[in-house]
Simulated assay, not measured.
Amino acid sequence: MGWFGFAAIFAVFFLTHSIPVRPAVKSQAVRLLGTRGFGLAYSTLSVAMLALLIWSAGQAPYVQLWPQMEWHRHAAHLGMLAVSLILATSIGRPNPFSFGGARNDSFDPARPGIVRWMRHPVLVALAIWAGVHLLPNGDLAHVILFGVLGSFAVAGGALIDRRKQQSLGAARWTALNTARKAAPWVPAPLGWPGLVTRLALGVAVFATLLLAHPYVIGVPAL
């Protein structure tokens, strides 16, 4: 695959992420599939396109910018452990500020969980994932891939903030955000068993990613 094919898949990746969430398109899709069905379909499409994009970067012409060093992989392991724990403690939890949450009406700003530290945990996880993968992948195609995706994740927070302020109302959003920041820096969990289960799940996901990496990505992570 040449640079044109890589660029074409990159363009399709962004189209499949931007078009379905446009208000007119999303409302029609939700009517057809339901809220849960739309979320599942969009998530499946996103993962599939991400896998295709990563594959295309590996097929692009190889132009080395820096060599891989042993500590690069250790840094990537630590970063991916953080990613797994962030996702495990945020997905399916109330979060009216971003996506990836559930039961947002039950969000308690006095006990915000991981939202106390970050309004957009999924985007933070994506940014860390991209950043730590830059280190051991110092060729031009992968630097473009992870650099663009990391920048996209960082910029996405501001975009979502604007959309949420419009949907919630600026006064409501500001009040929730102020209350969130006023919570203890280490907020009490909603339940210790649930927290321990989520942390254990995060560690299990991390271990699975390490073991599956050579089969899914084609390159061993260890």
Rank of each mutant, 00 (worst) to 15 (best):
Gly218Gln: 02
Val122Cys: 09
Pro96Ile: 03
Pro121Tyr: 00
Val186Pro: 02
Ile160Leu: 05
Gly58Ile: 08
Ile19Thr: 05
Ser151Gly: 14
Leu195Val: 09
Pro184Gln: 08
Ser167Phe: 10
Val132His: 01
Pro214Met: 09
Arg111Glu: 01
Asp139Gln: 06
Arg73Lys: 12
Ala204Asn: 11
Tyr215Ile: 15
Gly147Pro: 08
Gln64Ser: 15
Ser151Gln: 12
Gly5Asp: 05
Ala179His: 06
Gly58Thr: 08
Gly202Arg: 03
Pro20Asn: 04
Val122Gly: 04
Arg162Phe: 10
Ala188Met: 11
Ala207Phe: 13
Ile86Gln: 00
Ile9Thr: 04
Ser18Glu: 12
Leu85Thr: 03
Ala110Thr: 07
Pro109Val: 04
Phe38Lys: 02
Gly2Trp: 02
Phe99Ala: 00
His72Arg: 01
Leu40Val: 13
Ile217Trp: 00
Leu32Ile: 10
Ser151Ile: 15
Gly113Cys: 11
Leu53Lys: 01
Pro112Thr: 02
Ala200Asp: 11
Gly92Gln: 05
Lys26Val: 10
Met118Tyr: 03
Gly34Ile: 12
Leu40Trp: 06
Val83Thr: 05
Ser90Met: 06
His17Gln: 09
Val30Ser: 01
Met69Asn: 15
Thr35Asn: 09
Ile144Lys: 03
Leu126Lys: 04
Ala141Cys: 07
Val63Tyr: 15
Trp66Pro: 14
Trp192Lys: 06
Pro23His: 06
Phe13Thr: 02
Pro193Cys: 11
Asp161Leu: 07
Ile9Lys: 04
Met1Phe: 03
Pro23Val: 07
Gln64Met: 15
Val25Phe: 10
Ala76Asp: 08
Ala48Lys: 05
Ser56Asn: 10
Phe99Thr: 00
Gln165Thr: 07
Val115Asn: 00
Gln28Phe: 14
Met118Gln: 05
Ile86Trp: 01
Gly79Phe: 05
Lys164Val: 13
Val124Trp: 03
Ala207Asp: 10
Ser56Lys: 05
Ala130Trp: 06
Ser167Gly: 08
Asn104Val: 10
Tyr215Gly: 09
Lys164Leu: 10
Val47Thr: 06
Ala7Cys: 13
Leu176Met: 03
Lys181Phe: 13
Val205Glu: 14
Pro109Asp: 01
Met1Trp: 02
Ala170Ser: 14
Asp139Val: 12
Leu53Asn: 05
Val219Arg: 03
Gly218Val: 10
Thr178Asn: 14
Ser18Tyr: 12
Val30His: 00
Val186His: 03
Met49Ile: 04
Ser46Met: 10
His77Asn: 12
Lys164Cys: 07
Ala29Phe: 06
Gly202His: 05
Ser98Lys: 01
Gly218Arg: 00
Trp117Val: 13
Pro214Lys: 06
Leu65Ile: 15
Phe146Lys: 00
Lys164Tyr: 06
Gly156Phe: 09
Gly147Val: 12
Arg73Trp: 13
Ala88Asn: 04
Pro214Gly: 07
His133Asn: 08
Ala153Gln: 02
Ser43Tyr: 02
Leu53Phe: 11
